[in-house]
Design a protein around this nucleic acid. Structure first.
Lengths: 233, 233
DNA sequence: ACAAAAGTGTTCAATTTACACCCATGG
DNA sequence: CCATGGGTGTAAATTGAACACTTTTGT
């Protein structure tokens, strides 16, 4: 870090959230409708400004709680990247740090204190249409989520506990946008040490054989990884 | 992005670089010795502040050129993460965006305009001893580099062109900190479409059979990945 | 001839893939 | 009994790990 010219640039620092969930077998993101200029009436990712004495992750957790009423520590929350194009906010110079949050299918889309109209929208329906550079941020966050499903056990964070292996498979299919063989998927997950733990209970579906219910296991990383071969939007 | 309270926090934005190379079969990082407080005399990662009208990547390229005299566009340069702990800089509130740069073994450690004493140091020799939170940044950058070697063809960015497959293997061994089977490695690289392209020429080593020389191929991603099983520092 | 690094061949085990087949339930 | 989703079995193909062996140079 240089020491000369400490007077350089002062700027705002925003934290924006790509909160993803799987609803009705489709990958969706929480968006808000902007009620101020610029981009008034357009959809955007929820976010806010970093406060005095606050860490980046703490700011992300606070925003998440404000928008969804959920405890950030309970959800998967990870930094994606920082975005700093000089003109990304037409008002002031603002650098934004984007976070990816993974939420189970919530009964309430928004229970937060924030009065703005927030709602879930399928990725394909909003990507390319968001305010600021939020479409880029969303695309990066979705790509990150896809990678994480290959290499880690976070897919379970999309499921409310307890869940079935079929639920988990639908998460993979929605996020990767491709069908998977239910039989091989079942074995793969069940045989990966620490991915899921059986609860002993079963769930009876509308039709078909009851499925074993599981909770998340202690494993964080998948080795060997669960691989996708090609993906579609 | 919230609109209320746009007056919130104004802060400095730094861009810090973890410039990695492999020298003498060891993974090394470019560090500078600080000649101002705080952390005077201690080693730190090179970096500087974001300027008016400048993108984050442009700032990283500029800093890279200032420190090494190299063209940032010619090297592999990717964002690692943003760091924003409130007390990470004891002077002002500063958020830093860290970049990972991968350089071939340069004849000149530093040819930059910057007069500060910069030099290469083995990772293990400086990690835990750097100023600010730079040890954390460096650890994250090294982990990122290790992942990239598994999944992408960036290892070639550590080699000056042309290079032999043996050169490439030494990069993997240095970055991962583990020996690899030269015979299987050779086949793996040669059979991965677009990883390396033979130049037709050969290089005669001090001793042993001459090795075919290669350039980087067009492939960016490795599929299937080249996997490490465990790593050591 | 020997040492050393490059590169090929081969074998065995592990993994992936595709798909047949059985299980358990509601209608 | 049928439809539906859960789950096991299994055989073929692919991949990975280990290592014997050949090639090509300098000394």
């Amino acid at each position: 870090m240089a020491d000369r010219d400490r007077e350089h640039l002062l700027l705002h620092l925003a934290v924006d959230l790509a909160i993803l969930t799987v609803r009705e077998d489709v990958l969706q993101v929480l968006v808000i409708e902007r009620d101020n200029q610029p981009y008034r009436g357009q959809e955007a990712l929820p976010g806010g400004f970093l406060r005095q004495g606050e860490d980046l992750l703490s700011a992300a957790e606070r925003e998440l709680a404000e928008e969804t009423g959920l405890d950030g520590k309970a959800l998967h929350l990870e930094q994606v990247a920082a975005y700093g194009a000089p003109d990304r906010d037409p008002r002031d110079r603002t650098v934004s740090v984007a976070y990816l949050a993974i939420a189970p299918d919530l009964p309430i889309p928004v229970a937060g204190s924030d009065a703005r109209s927030a709602h879930w929208a399928p990725i394909g329906q909003v990507i390319g249409k968001l305010a600021f550079d939020h479409s880029t941020i969303l695309a990066d966050a979705v790509e990150r989520a896809r990678e994480r499903l290959e290499l880690t056990t976070v897919a379970a964070a999309f499921c409310g506990e307890p869940f079935t292996i079929g639920d988990l498979r639908k998460v993979y299919e929605a996020v990767w946008g491709m069908p998977l063989d239910p039989r091989n998927f079942n074995r793969k997950v069940a045989n990966t040490e620490g991915f899921v733990l059986p609860t002993g209970a079963r769930r009876v579906p509308e039709t078909g054989r009851p499925a074993t219910l599981y909770r998340r296991g202690p494993a964080q990383k998948l080795s060997p990884p669960l691989m996708r071969h090609s993906a579609a939007f």
